[in-house]
Design a protein around this nucleic acid. Structure first.
Length: 762
RNA sequence: UCGGGGUUCGUCUAAGGGCAGGACAUCAGUUUUUGGUACUGAUUAUAGAGGUUCGAAUCCUCUACCCCGAACCA
């Protein structure tokens, strides 16, 4: 685990640092204090703070507290505590957007003076109507043309509380026809006569996220503002605000995919519902994937951070396997959790030939040899013990390696015993097993001539402690509870099982743990709220990997069922590029006639189609042809190699005839690899093909005498790969050609190289 | 007048014209006084179709599917 994480965001930062765009990295984690942090936030925290740490920068914890209606100090406190618990340092104190309210206001004033913002007095519903729809442009608000003075006056009166909520809003004057609806004169300020958890009643005017957030970033000198995918549409607006704020900071927003985990819900709204409807005991219910819930469950921050490293960062909409979280939790706990014994579902085991009242003290280690850690405690062996009811089967199933009538098994760290008799209750359930022991088996020797079927854990009936054990399972029974319908319908009714168990006495003092492993069961931690020295309560953090019960139950693995999208069906279908080109030809006779003509001169319908979506393509094509390039060749190079600006090929920077050298000479003067490179250069900046070939040494090398030595060297340098190739791994040919091409700086004739390589590796 | 993102083993994620790699999961084996751990091995992927190229997951075209956007939420 020495490899540094790498992802597209780090690539962007590396490039920014390399280009000198930035000399330092400053990020921020900007929660709204309206709920508790969950594991999805942890991903963002690890990313933002991790970036700051990796690049020697800084990461601010900043509360985006622009909506007093939902926010509360309770959340501020819990968020601060959670971030610190996760192990991240946000400096001396957290920052608050509300501290910048006065600055925001003055920037709004500036926008008004510059005619870039106006007070709109439409009501909420009217604003929505005027905004238009996904397929139709919006229409201008009747107040869009208010004078600067009028706006200034109204805005000032909005601030002093002259108007009721909703009477007026401040809007940016951008573009009501923008296809990105976020740019259709977005709201900047709304009136809210509501006290704010920090500013009290100082304001009745509150900024919107889209206005406040970029300003917060700019004010703090954030270089890389990282947020989740759903804000992609907001980015142009973010840039607009930064550009028009005249603030020196120039933050840039980059979006990544939020975390999705199967068998869980992640939205704050839904978590809030679970808490409010008391489906769980609170935000810190150990079944909740909130940071506080995971903490109470017994997860350590190291495991959560490790999980975030493991899942990576990308723009893919993804759902991570819950098993991955469980894996990191186990992996984190395995080397640090002392082993003790606890019997969760007890039945009594009585050893008939063991002296009543006798007790033997056994000193046993806290860790198995492979962990290699010191530490030991005493357990007492006696005539009456408890064992796990699941460790006994009267009629053992196939593969069962535990206790059954007549079988010898070892009691961990103790003696081997043989089950002689079974005692059942009225319901026919086994409540007690009677055994005999072999007093020569304590150190590890087996009873003379007998097979020992397995090792099971136990506790001494005389001095073990009662404890309540809470076994947690995933909160939802469906892989994608929020796929459709009400997610509450998919709550797992068995997500909490409470057991009355017996545990080793050493657990009472609190000297071990807090996280411990109950051998053969899982990892457990005393519940931080309910456990007391005289009334122990343990939470199961996570079970041990169990390859037996899985086999025994043969549970059909339930794959995460693909949620059927209801949303996409309601979205209007937009035209494809092909349809748009067709429409363009329908409107423009030149395009239409070109489409026919290009096919007449031998181009495929598909190529002709693309080349006649706009005049630009055809213009370039005609120019190449006029300079002497055959139609098909011109189309091929134009379509495949010519640099573009959006959907259209860029203007030729060089004389068109220069391109002839690239194409017609292909195969003789230069290789296609060099040709592609050269084409791009000529297209972008003026130049002479012949001069460039000369200056860059692009002349093709195709004589055996020049190539053979390179091939020999490459084969000699990669002897093991050569033999692998000869052994049948022929995908390696690409590797060899690549090596030779690289060694020749792309100048070798690839066909020739292949031919010679084939011969050399035969 | 719709726009913006996305699609690589079952899952997550690398490779950005040249060996499709890693992790989790699964299966098999070795070690083990935990059916744990550790170790070894195995299985499995470039959404589909066409094109460019000696060579395409990667470049071009088309198609399909998924996600996001019409809060005075963030």
């Amino acid at each position: 685990m020495t490899s540094k994480p790498s992802d597209f965001i780090r690539d962007i930062i590396d490039a920014d640092l390399a280009s000198g765009k930035h000399t330092e990295v400053k990020t921020r984690f900007p929660p709204e204090p309206n709920g508790y942090l969950h594991i999805g936030h942890a991903k963002s925290i690890c990313l933002n703070f991790g970036l700051a740490k990796q690049y020697g920068g800084q990461c601010n914890l900043r509360f985006d507290d622009t909506n007093p209606a939902k926010e509360d100090q309770e959340y501020v406190d819990s968020i601060c505590a959670d971030v610190r618990w996760l192990g991240f340092d946000y400096g001396s104190e957290a920052l608050f957007a509300s501290d910048y309210f006065e600055t925001f206001y003055s920037i709004a004033l500036k926008l008004i003076r510059e005619g870039k913002a106006y007070v709109c007095s439409l009501n909420e519903e009217e604003i929505r109507e005027y905004r238009g729809s996904l397929k139709e442009a919006g229409t201008a608000s009747p107040h869009r043309s208010r004078t600067v003075d009028e706006n200034l006056d109204l805005f000032a009166r909005m601030r002093v509380g002259e108007f009721k909520d909703g009477a007026h809003v401040l809007r940016a004057k951008i573009d009501m026809g923008a296809s990105n609806m976020k740019m259709r004169d977005p709201l900047l300020y709304r009136i809210r006569h509501q006290s704010h958890h920090r500013t009290g009643d100082t304001w009745c005017l509150y900024p919107m996220y889209d206005f406040a957030h970029p300003l917060e970033d700019a004010l703090e000198g954030i270089t890389h503002s990282i947020c989740t995918l759903e804000f992609e549409n907001n980015r142009p607006l973010y840039d607009w605000v930064v550009a028009n704020s005249a603030l020196p900071g120039k933050p840039e927003q980059t979006e990544f995919a939020r975390l999705g985990l199967d068998y869980s819900v992640m939205s704050k709204r839904k978590l809030f519902q679970l808490v409010e409807q008391e489906r769980v005991s609170g935000w810190d219910d150990p079944r909740m994937l909130t940071v506080s819930g995971m903490r109470r469950r017994g997860y350590r921050p190291e495991a959560i951070v490790r999980f975030c490293d493991l899942i990576g960062v990308s723009k893919n909409n993804s759902t991570v396997d819950m098993g991955k979280l469980e894996y990191v939790v186990r992996d984190d706990l395995n080397p640090i959790a002392p082993r003790v014994m606890a019997v969760l579902r007890p039945i009594k085991l009585v050893i008939n030939n063991y002296e009543a009242g006798k007790s033997e003290a056994l000193t046993v280690p806290f860790f198995p040899p492979d962990i290699g850690k010191p530490g030991e405690r005493e357990v007492h062996f006696g005539r009456e013990l408890y064992i796990e009811s699941t460790d006994f089967e009267e009629e053992p199933s196939k593969g069962f390696r535990r206790m059954a009538p007549g079988r010898w098994i070892r009691l961990r760290y103790g003696y081997c015993v043989r089950c002689d008799e079974v005692i059942k209750n009225d319901d026919g359930e086994v409540v007690e097993v009677r055994c005999s022991y072999d007093d020569s088996t304590l150190g590890g020797t087996s009873p003379e001539g007998e097979k020992v079927w397995g090792i099971i854990h136990w506790v001494n009936a005389a001095d073990s402690l009662p404890a309540e054990i809470r076994i947690y399972d995933r909160l939802f029974s469906a892989a994608a509870p929020d796929a459709g319908g009400n997610f509450l319908d998919y709550l797992n009714s068995d997500s909490l099982e409470t057991l009355e168990a017996w545990v080793e006495p050493c657990l009472a003092g609190g000297d071990v743990g807090p996280q411990v492993q109950f051998e053969r069961q899982g990892y457990f931690v005393p519940d931080s709220v309910d456990s007391r020295p005289d009334a122990l309560v343990f939470n199961r953090i996570v079970g041990l990997k169990d390859s037996w019960s899985k086999k025994a139950v043969a549970e059909p693995s339930t794959p995460a069922e693909k949620p059927k999208s209801a949303r996409s069906a309601t979205r209007p279908k937009s035209r494809s590029k092909a349809e748009i080109r067709g429409a363009a030809r329908y409107r423009d006779a030149t395009l239409a006639s070109r489409f026919i003509r290009y096919q007449d001169v031998g181009l495929s319908e598909g190529d002709a189609d693309v080349l006649t979506g706009s005049l630009t393509w055809g213009d370039r094509l005609e120019a190449l042809n006029a300079a002497g390039m055959p139609w098909d060749l011109a189309a091929k190079w134009l379509l495949n190699e010519h640099p573009r600006e959006g959907d259209d090929p860029i203007e030729f920077a060089s004389d068109v005839s220069e391109f002839l050298v690239v194409t017609t000479a292909s195969g003789t003067l230069i290789t296609t690899t060099s040709g592609s490179k050269l084409w791009g250069q000529l297209a972008r900046e003026p130049g002479s093909a012949k001069a460039l070939i000369k200056s860059q040494g692009l002349e093709q090398v195709s004589d055996d005498a020049s190539i053979q030595p390179i091939i020999d060297k490459v084969i000699a340098d990669n002897a093991s790969k050569a033999s692998a190739y000869r052994g049948g791994k022929d995908t390696l040919m690409g590797f060899f050609i690549g090596q030779v091409m690289r060694a020749s700086k792309g100048k070798a004739n690839a066909e020739k190289v292949k031919e010679l390589l084939l011969a050399a590796l035969a």
